[in-house]
């Protein structure tokens, strides 16, 4: 675009800014596009141009004219809208707003499974009404272990119980799929316990990785990355020895939270007896497992202090989680 055209446009823009009525705009319009307006005159002087330049000049003049027309038209609409009271009060309430939300437990499970999926874990589910073999025996939990007590386990009949952990799903997966295996098992679990920090039903997710040459460093790798990603920042993490019948060595992972060490998950290398129980060759394969309570993690992440909130299902509580997946 020729230089004088550019300055013409910016001149016009300046002038339009000053306009406050359609009358002002009409004046400007005639200044430019009227019978003796600037543009009309320019078209008039086209015939003075050299024959070979005339075509090019005409084209750029047409572009200029269109631009000017558009600018004037836009300003006119702007002024009319305000004047005609068509302006919308966009601060009025939106219509049919839905405050739908996922349950914080589901949100937490989704958060965890999407991280673990990146590490190669596949989500697997199983039955909640279990038998002693899958819930206890196969997991190397002896008859005398505290977890076997009537006190902790809900029984549905003499030989059927509500699973006390999702490890039973791991046993079923190992029995049907054998090694190698890389699974996670989210779900409901049940313990005969009820107080402000224990619920008779809660949610767990466990992870299991069985393959050749899996060792303790791999376990630490997955869990440290997982905790960091889940909380979205570097956390102070420590591993300390612990005891579970189904892992050896066993460990617990603590995170520093508000200056205090908090236990967040249990883990360890899968006990050779467990692998033998599901007919996996311990000479060829080894693996690690970990398990954590969903509610506990959700409480830490969302600063929830009372476990009972999760199952009261008060809409005022639930709808606070809108927007989270």
């Amino acid at each position: 675009m020729p230089k004088d055209h550019t300055s013409l446009i910016s001149d016009l823009e300046e002038k339009l800014k000053e306009c406050s009525s359609s009358h002002d705009i009409a004046n400007i319009k005639s200044q430019y596009l009227g019978k003796s307006g600037i543009i009309t005159n320019k078209f008039g002087s086209l015939k003075d141009a050299a024959l070979d330049e005339r075509k090019e000049l005409g084209r750029s003049l047409n572009i200029l004219k269109t631009q000017i027309q558009n600018l004037i038209a836009a300003k006119l609409i702007e002024i009319q809208d305000v004047k005609n009271d068509n302006k919308v009060d966009i601060t009025l309430p939106g219509k049919n707003i839905s405050t739908g939300s996922k349950h914080p437990v589901s949100i937490t499970i989704n958060g965890i499974t999407s991280i673990l999926a990146k590490y190669g874990f596949t989500s697997v589910s199983g039955v909640e009404v279990e038998d002693e073999f899958h819930n206890f025996e196969a997991l190397n939990i002896p008859e005398t272990h505290p977890a076997r007590d009537m006190h902790d386990t809900f029984y549905v009949s003499d030989d059927k119980l509500l699973r006390t952990h999702t490890s039973s799903v791991q046993i079923r997966s190992m029995l049907s799929n054998k090694a190698p295996l890389k699974i996670m098992t989210p779900g409901k679990v049940y313990r005969c316990d009820s107080d402000p920090t224990h619920s008779p039903m809660f949610h767990q997710i466990e992870g299991l990785y069985i393959d050749k040459n899996v060792n303790f460093c791999h376990l630490k790798g997955v869990l440290i990355s997982f905790i960091t990603e889940f909380f979205g920042k570097d956390m102070e993490i420590r591993f300390r020895p612990s005891y579970f019948p189904f892992t050896e060595p066993s460990a617990e992972l603590d995170i520093k939270f508000k200056g205090k060490w908090l236990e967040v998950l249990g883990c360890g290398m899968v006990h050779p007896n467990v692998l033998s129980n599901v007919k996996i060759d311990t000479k060829k394969y080894s693996g690690f497992a970990f398990g954590l309570g969903i509610e506990r993690l959700a409480m830490l992440k969302y600063d929830i202090v009372d476990l009972r909130m999760f199952y009261e299902n008060d809409i005022s509580f639930l709808s606070q989680f809108k927007g989270l997946k």
Binding site: P186, V214, L223, P249
Partner: peptide, 27 residues
Amino acid sequence: VARVYGYNNFKPILATNSLNNIKDSTN
């Protein structure tokens, strides 16, 4: 031996390999 050595003295290794031999049954 490991607990005297110190669990925190083992270097973490992240293995992200996917086995894809099982169908997701939870979603």
